[in-house]
Amino acid sequence: MGTYKLILNGKTLKGETTTEAVDAATAEKVFKQYANDNGVDGEWTYDDATKTFTVTE
């Protein structure tokens, strides 16, 4: 398990959240659902060194 971070750079929603997941693929699924639930759809990037996903609208 590891802690993964999501940085939201949406047009109307900005912020950060974290999740505990077994791997990056699992964290990505959780974060994409979170972003979708909050109406954020954009370009995704992932930094393996910091376990950080970023979505920018």
Rank of each mutant, 00 (worst) to 15 (best):
V22E: 13
G42F: 03
Y34W: 15
D23T: 05
K51R: 14
T26D: 10
T56K: 06
Q33L: 09
Q33T: 08
F53T: 01
V40F: 11
T19Q: 05
E28Y: 15
T50R: 06
A21R: 03
A35G: 03
N38A: 13
L13H: 13
V55G: 01
T3C: 09
K14C: 09
E43G: 05
E57W: 14
N36E: 13
E43C: 11
G39T: 04
L6W: 02
T3N: 07
M1L: 13
T3P: 05
T50H: 06
G15P: 04
T26P: 02
E16S: 11
T18N: 07
T18Q: 11
T19G: 03
K14A: 07
N36L: 15
T26C: 06
T52A: 04
W44C: 02
G42W: 05
Y46W: 04
A24V: 12
G15A: 12
W44H: 01
M1Y: 13
G10H: 06
G2K: 14
K5H: 12
T18D: 05
A25G: 09
K14M: 10
A35Q: 02
K5A: 05
T45I: 10
I7S: 04
L6T: 01
V55T: 03
A25I: 12
T52S: 04
V30H: 10
M1I: 11
Y4P: 00
D47G: 02
A49I: 10
K32G: 03
D23I: 02
W44L: 03
F31K: 00
A24M: 12
T45C: 08
K11C: 11
T50M: 08
G10N: 04
W44G: 00
V22Y: 14
F53W: 08
T19V: 14
E16A: 09
A25P: 09
D41M: 11
K5L: 07
D47M: 05
T19P: 01
Y34V: 05
G2L: 14
D37Y: 07
L6K: 00
A35Y: 03
E20S: 12
I7H: 05
N9V: 14
A25W: 11
T17E: 06
K5S: 06
A24T: 07
G42L: 03
E28T: 04
T45Y: 11
D41V: 14
A27N: 00
A24K: 15
D41I: 15
T18P: 02
D41K: 13
T3E: 08
A21G: 04
V30N: 07
G39K: 07
A27T: 01
Q33P: 02
T50I: 06
D37R: 10
A21L: 02
A24E: 06
A49C: 07
T54P: 00
T12W: 15
T17V: 15
N9K: 09
D47C: 08
E20P: 06
A27C: 02
E28K: 11
K32M: 09
T56S: 09
K51V: 03
E57Q: 12
N36I: 15
V22S: 12
K11H: 10
Y46F: 07
E43S: 11
D41Y: 13
T54I: 10
K11T: 11
G39S: 07
E20N: 10
K29V: 11
F53Q: 00
T56F: 08
Q33E: 07
T17D: 03
K29A: 12
N38Y: 13
Y34H: 04
K5E: 03
W44E: 00
K32Q: 08
D47F: 04
E43P: 05
K14F: 08
A21T: 05
T18C: 08
V30F: 14
A49W: 09
D37W: 08
T56W: 10
L6S: 01
E16V: 11
D23Y: 03
D41C: 11
V55D: 01
K14P: 06
V40Y: 07
E57K: 04
V40H: 04
L13Q: 07
T45S: 13
N36T: 14
K14G: 05
A25V: 09
D37M: 13
G42P: 01
L6P: 00
K29P: 03
T26L: 05
T56N: 11
Q33D: 06
T56M: 07
E16F: 13
G2V: 15
T54L: 06
V40K: 02
T3L: 14
K11D: 07
K11M: 13
V40W: 12
V55C: 08
F31A: 01
A35I: 05
A35D: 00
V22I: 13
T54E: 05
K5C: 06
G2Y: 14
T45F: 11
T50P: 02
T56E: 06
T52V: 06
E16L: 11
M1N: 10
T50C: 04
N36P: 02
L8F: 11
D41L: 14
D37G: 05
V40L: 12
D37A: 13
F53G: 00
T50A: 08
N36Y: 14
